[in-house]
């Protein structure tokens, strides 16, 4: 399974970023039978966009063949676009590291994000 996690840093020991469209990195975590096999870090192309950051990020993850996203909040556009791309979204808030959140997903403990939150507006940092 190919999972993308909105990340504050570049390793799976770093924290998840609560923001989806404006997180600095995505960690692409490949799991096989629930075990982490591979981790790739990629900058979030949406982070520096003036507007439409969430949609830019969905397009990026879609082209990478991501099947699930772990993040904190999803704006309405990103929420709907992920659904259309058949990418599931899970809430990883409350876990100390990205690794812990991925493991929680693998053991079925992460709740699916079922509705969008308010969008994060503005460039880069907020």
């Amino acid at each position: 399974m190919k999972i993308a996690v909105s990340a504050a840093g570049t390793t799976i020991e770093d924290q998840m970023d609560e923001r989806f469209g404006r997180c600095p990195y995505f960690l692409l975590v490949e799991t096989v039978d629930g075990v982490i096999k591979d981790v790739i870090v990629t900058p979030n192309e949406g982070a520096i966009e003036g507007h439409g950051a969430g949609l830019k990020a969905v397009a990026q993850l879609g082209e990478l063949g991501v099947e699930a996203v772990i993040t904190g909040n999803l704006g309405p556009n990103a929420f709907n676009a992920l659904a259309q791309m058949h990418i599931s979204a899970y809430c990883g808030s409350g876990y100390a590291t990205i690794k812990a959140a991925v493991e929680a997903l693998q053991s079925g403990k992460l709740p699916e994000i079922s509705q969008s939150q308010q969008a994060h507006h503005g460039m880069g940092v907020n």
Partner: peptide, 16 residues
């Protein structure tokens, strides 16, 4: 350039 469209190969485009 307005990021209004998400188009991923194999999926119906998403338009905002």
């Amino acid at each position: 350039k307005a990021n209004a469209i998400v188009s991923v190969t194999g999926h119906e485009p998403f338009f905002s």
